[in-house]
Design a protein around this nucleic acid. Structure first.
Length: 419
RNA sequence: GGAGAGGUGGCCGAGUUGGCUGAAGGCGUACGCCUGCUAAGCGUAUGAGGGGCGUUGAGCUUCUCCGAGGGUUCGAAUCCCUCCCUCUCCGCCA
């Protein structure tokens, strides 16, 4: 959601921003509605004021035992006029709120303008790569341990079932990620995996991406597409005392996405599935601190990739690749030695006050004063399936071993290979 | 799932024979004063949102909001209906 003052005073900026993102921009309709709304509001308010005055006069006269019949008749007439205008106003209001949900967030000035991911700015590449051997893709290495046939039977295409040490590797990774994030001082959260409609609106999945969400019939709940939804909505409709900021949270959740329109190589193996697991961080900060918080989150994720001994790169997304709700986003991708391509494993975004406005997440300045909108950020730390893919490829040796990085061996306790 | 109770401002908590109650009181917080045996006392201020005029980080004014929505009424936090949520007891269950 965007600031109404911005929509009113600088519609061109909104139009340009939406254009750069390749998103819709119902600014003309909004401007009409806004003008109509304000005109109606003035009329309704002056009539309501009149009615309030008449009412208190009626009250005063009745107390004195006088006949207020004349005033009551006038008040009733006023009330009828108010009713008519209020009905129209309610309609305009409702449409305006609906329209406002369709404005994408404005990209941060730092974001390169471009139509798609080819304009993303690659900031750095770290870690090394083996060029002396040909590594098979993870689905070959994992073989029957990545049992897509079974998942297909149980559920359907593009679901995953892991067996044996592949399943255990996933559990170990989650455990390690949770510990690592906890050690960084964030609060650990265990969250619901279904979210109500308003939660989905707050973080921006609805209305635009509703078709990509799994919906539970009967009670209007959605399977969470990311832990961002529950974690951010933890503070919906809340005024947070300034001394409690910044708030840093993390938690595990499965993520459910229909991923309509994906196909081919993109979806092979663990590359793109309908349910995947992820540890997510969310940060809630004062507006002036979000830029710095964003960088710190990226550094945190990079540290994890370093410890996993993977090769990774960091990109600053261009406007065309930036999501609907994000103002600025870094993608972190790991190198898949078996597929010889980059796989996105973390997306760290700053939403500025976009989500805060949708969900009324505010803070009270320490010296008192009006509540202000916070800035929200989130990032994966990390998404599991592609990490597993990269990790088994990276650890694969021509002798058929899978060597894990030292940080995980502590967790595996030497058991992994036993299977 | 059944029965009962309840949802009021940052928090707690009055107010339901409908009418200066946007809301007593308390806590918390901010500023000021006083005092100096360890912290207290006194004073003042302190909900949110929208609109108009004005300013541009002054203000003035008005409307709305007492879980949400609808209804009754000249007028509703107070009456009626629907829904949501919380708590207690019972049932069921990993």
């Amino acid at each position: 959601m965007l600031d109404r003052n911005l929509l009113r005073n600088n519609p061109q900026a909104v139009r340009t921003a939406a254009g750069n993102k390749g998103e819709p921009c119902p600014i003309d309709r909004w401007t009409e509605l806004d003008a109509r709304r304000r005109s109606l509001l003035e009329q309704v308010e002056s009539l309501r004021r009149k009615r309030n005055e008449l009412s208190s006069m009626v009250s005063a006269m009745k107390k004195k035992g006088q006949d207020a019949g004349e005033l009551i008749r006038e008040s009733r007439k006023t009330g009828e006029a108010i009713g008519v205008l209020e009905k129209e106003l309610a309609g305009v209001d409702a449409e305006m709120r609906e329209v406002e949900l369709w404005f994408p967030n404005l990209p941060d000035p730092d974001v390169p303008v471009g139509v798609d991911d080819s304009h993303n700015k690659i900031l750095r590449i770290r870690g090394n790569v083996r060029t002396d051997i040909r590594v098979p893709p993870h689905w070959e290495i994992l073989g029957g341990l990545l049992d897509t046939d079974a998942a297909g039977t149980i559920t359907g295409a593009n679901f995953v079932l892991l067996r044996g040490w592949a399943a255990r590797l996933q559990r170990i990774l989650i455990d390690w990620m949770m510990d690592f994030n906890s050690a960084a001082g964030m609060e650990e959260i265990w969250m619901p995996f279904l979210a109500c409609r308003q939660s989905m609106i707050t973080t921006g999945q609805i209305p635009k991406l509703e078709e990509d969400m799994y919906h539970v019939d009967g009670n209007d709940l959605f399977l969470v597409p990311t832990g961002e939804v529950p974690l951010t909505n933890l503070y919906r409709n809340t005024i947070i005392p300034e001394k409690n900021l910044p708030i840093s949270l993390f938690g595990y959740s499965p993520c459910f996405r229909k991923e309509a329109g994906s196909y081919g190589k993109e979806t092979r193996g663990l590359n793109r599935v309908h349910q995947f697991e992820k540890v997510e961080m969310v940060r809630i900060v004062k507006p002036e601190e979000s830029g710095e918080a964003h960088e710190k989150m990226v550094a945190h994720v990079e540290k994890m990739l370093e410890l996993l001994e993977l090769r990774w790169r960091v990109s600053l997304l261009s406007t065309g690749d930036l999501s609907f709700a994000a103002a600025k986003c870094y993608d972190l991708e790991v190198w898949s030695e078996g597929q010889e391509r980059w796989l996105e494993v973390s997306s760290v975004s700053n939403f500025h006050d976009f989500q805060a406005r949708r969900g009324m997440i505010r803070y009270r300045p320490a010296g008192g004063g009006k509540p202000r909108f916070v800035h929200t950020l989130n990032g994966s730390a990390l998404a599991l399936p592609r990490i597993i893919a990269a990790l088994v490829e990276r650890g694969w040796t021509p002798e058929g071993e899978i060597k894990l990085p030292p940080v995980l061996l502590n967790y595996a306790k030497g058991n992994l290979a036993a299977d």
